[in-house]
Design a protein around this nucleic acid. Structure first.
Lengths: 360, 360
DNA sequence: TGTTAATGTGGTAGCGCTTACATAACGACC
DNA sequence: GGTCGTTATGTAAGCGCTACCACATTAACA
C-alpha cells in the first residue's frame, strides 16, 4: 500500500542505505545511481515517512508555541515573527492556545518531554511555574518571552529569555499621564503574577513614587479564573472586561485614565465606557499596550505603548533554534528590546471640572 | 539517559508488553502489578516516547491548519473554533500561515503525505488546487472551508466541506447598498479565484442583475502576487491595500461604496480614505466581511456581513476528526452555515450631491 | 609499487514502542 | 472431567528509517 524506502531500494537494485543517502543528500552516491533511484521514487510515488525519521533522529523539527489567547494582536504579531523564522529554518509550529487554562498548557509541555517537540516558546503567565522550572533544569530547549525565572538564574540551562523593556514601558506611560494631571489611574490586565504585568506595574509604581504617590490597589483589576473564561463565547475576554470595567467605573468614578495591558479586553472596556457615558479622551484617557493596525482607526485613535513584538518573536525563534541545534549552548543574558510610545488621541489632560480625578 | 519502557519493565520485573498495557490502559493487568509498574514509572521519571508510538500506530494525533494570514479576525476565530474541538478530542494543531505563498502551503501539505499529520483543514485559495485534488483522490483526511472541488464531486473521498453561505452574503450586502442608491460599488479582496470570493462576487452580480446592472471589473481589486506580500513588514496587507485603494479612488472617484472581503486590508483602506478626504459614511460607504470585537468601536462603527466563523471552525474540526477515525466515512454534502448581517454606521445612502455615484 | 585519501555501496543494528499470538491459570457449567 | 470464557502475562515481530561500520574501488602522489 504505502511504498517504503526498502521497496524503492529493491526496485532500483540498490541497498536501503543508498536510498537513504539519496533522500537525505548525505554521503556519497554516484550520479547515475542517484538518478535511477530518483526515477524509481517518482515512478512509484515514494514519500518518506517522517515519523520513522523522527524516531531514529530523535528530532521532529517542530516547536511548540504556548500563548493565552488568539484575540490579542500582541500574540498574533509574535506568532508571525516566530513563524517567519521557523519557516526558513525548516521548523514547524505547533500552536497551543491555553486561554489561561493550566491543564491545556501542561498537556502541551508534556509533548516536549515525550519527544514530539524539539523545543518550546512560551509567552504565558505563572500558572505552570514549577513545571517550567523543572523543564529548564532538565535542559529542554525553551525560550521564554517577557518572563524570568529567578530560581534557575545561575544554573546552566538551555533556556533563553527575550523581553520588551516593560518596566520602562509602564514607567513612561504613567509619567506621561501624571504630567497631564492624572492621579486616579486604573489598570486592567489579563494575568496576575505574570512577569510582564509585574514589571509594568513596577514601572508604574516608580513613576508615581517620583510624584510622591502610589497606585491604588483597588484600581488594578485582573482577569478572573480560567474556567470562567474559556467558554468559546464570542469575544469572551471582552465580555469579562466589560463587567469588570462597569464595576470599576461605578465604584470608582474618579478614575481618569485606564491602562489596558491585555488587548482582548479592549472591546469590553470601550463598550462599558460608552454605556456609562464616559467619553474618550474628554472624560477618561485610554492607553493600550502594544500597537496594532486598526489602532489609529478606533474612535478615538488609540494611544499605545508598544513593544517591537515581531522582532521579539524573531529573536525568540532564532534563539530557540540555536539552542535546539547546539545542546552545549548555555543560557545567555536576556535579550531586551526597547518599547515605543505612539501617542494618538485617546489621551487628554484631566479636565479642570473633575477635581476628584486629580486628587491625591 | 532517557528512561525507556523496557527499563521500566526490567525494574518492575514484568514484560515490556505489560508496561505498554499500563501506559495505554489496554488489555488486562492485575491491580497489584499495575500499581508496582506505576510506582516504578514515577520513581524513575518515565515519560513515554510519542514518536515511537506514532511510528507503530501510524497516527500522530496532530492535524494541520492552513490559512493565509493571522491578521484576519476571520482566520483567528476559525482557528479558535477548530482548536476548541481538537483539544477535547486529544488532537494537536500544527499551524501553517502561508501568506499566499504556494511553496509554504505545499511544504505543509507534504507533512500529510509524510505521515506527520493525520489530517488537514484548509481555508486558502486556489494556489495549490491540483495538489489538493490529488490528495483528495488519495483519500487523505481533509476538510475544506469555503471551498469546493468540482473535479472530485462524485468520487468517493475522505474530504469534507464546510461553508458559509457566501453567495447569499454577497447578494444581501449588494442589495442593501443598491437600495440605498449605490451604483458604483468597489470590492477589495485577498485572493483571486478563491471559492469564497467567487461566490460573494456571484452573489453581488445576482443582486445587480436584479437591478439591470453589472459589476464593473475595474472596481474589483485583488491582492498582488505573493512575493510582494510576504515581507514581514508590519501590517503588510494594509500597506498593499493602501496603495490599491489610493489608486482606485484616484482613477475612480465615483466609487460610492467599498466591500472589504479581506480584513487585513482594512487599516490600509481606512488610511487611504482619510488621506483623500473621503469620509465614511458621508462620502463613501464601507462594509466588511466577518465581524470582530472591535468593529463597533471603529470610526465609524463598521457594518459587517459575518459568517458564524467559530461554528464553521468547530464543524470543520469535528468533521475532520470523524474522517480520521473512521476511514470508511465518505464525503457527505457540504455543511453550509448562514451568515448574519450586522448593520452599523459605516453605510449611508448615496448623497444627492454626487450624481456620478448613482449613475449607471 | 606502495601508501594514502577520496569515493561509492552494502549490511545491519537499533530508535522505543504496539500488538498479534501463545500460554496458562482459574472458575463455571453441564 | 472436559469445554469454555475470562483474566493475566510473556514472546517476539515489526513500524520505516538513519547511521555506523566494513569493504571495495579508484585516483593521486612520492
Amino acid at each position: 500500500m504505502r511504498v517504503t524506502a526498502k521497496q524503492v531500494a529493491e526496485k532500483a537494485g540498490v541497498s536501503l542505505a543508498t536510498v537513504s543517502r539519496v533522500i537525505n543528500r548525505s554521503g556519497y552516491v554516484e550520479a547515475s545511481v542517484r538518478a535511477r533511484i530518483e526515477a524509481v521514487m517518482a515512478e512509484v510515488g515514494y514519500v518518506p515517512n517522517r515519523t520513522a525519521k523522527n524516531l531514529v533522529t530523535g528530532r521532529t523539527k517542530t516547536v511548540g508555541l504556548i500563548i493565552t489567547s488568539l484575540q490579542s494582536p500582541y500574540f498574533i504579531r509574535l506568532t508571525e515573527g516566530i513563524q517567519d523564522v521557523l519557516e526558513n529554518k525548516g521548523y514547524h509550529l505547533l500552536l497551543c492556545n491555553t486561554k489561561f487554562n493550566a491543564k491545556i498548557e501542561l498537556e502541551n509541555l508534556q509533548l516536549l518531554r515525550e519527544g514530539m517537540l524539539d523545543g518550546v516558546i512560551t509567552s504565558t503567565g505563572s500558572l505552570t511555574h514549577e513545571v517550567m522550572v523543572e523543564l529548564i533544569r532538565q535542559h529542554y530547549p525553551m525560550v521564554f518571552i517577557n518572563r524570568l525565572f529567578d530560581e534557575v538564574k545561575n544554573e546552566p540551562a538551555r533556556a533563553g529569555f527575550v523581553m520588551g523593556d516593560l518596566h520602562y514601558a509602564g514607567l513612561n506611560v504613567t509619567r506621561h499621564l501624571l504630567e497631564q494631571g492624572h492621579r486616579q489611574i486604573a489598570v486592567l490586565y489579563g494575568s496576575a503574577n505574570s512577569t510582564s504585568n509585574i514589571l509594568r506595574l513596577q514601572g508604574m509604581e516608580k513613576a508615581m513614587a517620583d510624584y510622591g504617590l502610589r497606585p491604588r490597589p483597588e484600581l488594578l483589576r485582573c482577569v478572573p479564573n480560567p474556567p470562567e473564561l474559556s467558554s468559546g463565547l464570542d469575544d469572551t475576554e471582552g465580555v469579562w472586561a466589560y463587567r469588570e470595567t462597569m464595576e470599576l467605573l461605578q465604584t470608582h468614578p474618579e478614575v481618569s485614565a485606564i491602562l489596558v495591558f491585555y488587548h482582548p479586553m479592549l472591546s469590553g472596556i470601550m463598550k462599558a465606557l460608552r454605556e456609562v457615558g464616559r467619553k474618550v479622551p474628554e472624560s477618561v484617557s485610554l492607553v493600550g499596550f502594544d500597537d496594532f493596525p486598526l489602532a489609529p482607526y478606533l474612535d478615538p485613535p488609540l494611544t499605545v505603548m508598544g513593544q517591537p513584538v515581531y522582532e521579539i518573536g524573531r529573536a525568540a525563534a532564532r534563539l530557540l533554534v540555536q539552542k535546539i541545534e547546539d545542546p552545549t549552548l548555555r543560557v545567555a543574558e536576556p535579550i531586551v528590546l526597547k518599547p515605543d510610545f505612539t501617542i494618538r488621541r485617546s489621551i487628554a489632560p484631566v479636565p479642570a471640572r473633575y477635581p476628584a480625578m486629580a486628587a491625591e
